[in-house]
Nucleic acid binder design. Structure first.
Lengths: 119, 119
DNA sequence: CTTGTATATTCGAATTTTCTAATATACAAT
DNA sequence: ATTGTATATTAGAAAATTCGAATATACAAG
């Protein structure tokens, strides 16, 4: 695989490499939404939301459509939604692994005795 | 979806958000390989490769196994390979879109006249 | 035990990303 | 024209990532 293609692929991963952008994409799964709704639902700063949307636009992950005063965002390629759906299974299997790790760590760490302020 | 889960998801995307790490994962699709082979195949600096492998390990994308002098790496969850395979279709559809864009840009940009040094 | 080989870690500089605050733009409504 | 609302962009600081150079660790071979 060419270096250019690898750059391209990693750029798309990078587009999704932030919790806020994941949240935006997940919200858009149902269909298009104006930027304002995204901001409201996610409790974001306006400027910050706009910057993250710019990243998603630059990576061609979303497209925008202006109507009147508002800008409506939607996922550009519906295939991405399928991809995310498939990833969900992966995430959950990873997650259960991660939780197992957590449990192991907890088991190894001796439960600290409950102490009063004086002890 | 919880913030924690979004962080987790974005962490995995971030793990793949670098051309070198994409290259590593692609090489590991066939099966496990020692770090040295990865370095050799990709022409990487030893330290740099090791750092990228550390990122992939931290994200639980790969696992390592020590045998004698060498450390063998493999993809932790085969499901990731399927995921990448599915993503391939997405990448190509995106790529053809990108190439169309390029062609349009080229069409708009007037072909510069071929000039000699004197002109 | 010394040497060689494979890999990992640390350090500091360079780059990139992310954030907030401020400002700009675009359009609607009056 | 002016004002209000929605969104984007800019600027600069803070944080995170990436890199090469140097060093450390782990193991094998002699």
């Amino acid at each position: 695989m060419s270096e250019a293609l690898r750059q391209f692929k990693s750029a798309i991963f990078q587009g999704l490499a932030h919790p806020t952008r994941i949240a935006i994409v997940e919200l858009l799964r149902e269909g298009e939404l104006p930027a304002g709704k995204l901001i409201e639902q996610l409790g974001l700063e306006q400027a910050n939301a706009s910057q993250h949307l710019a990243v998603l636009r630059a990576r061609q992950i979303v497209v925008s459509r202006k109507h009147g005063n508002q800008v409506y965002y939607s996922i550009r390629d519906r295939a991405l939604i399928d991809v995310l759906e498939i990833l969900r299974h992966y995430f959950y299997s990873q997650l259960s692994g991660a939780m197992n790790m957590l449990r192991e760590v907890e088991a190894e760490t001796p439960e600290p005795h409950h102490r009063t302020i004086q002890s």
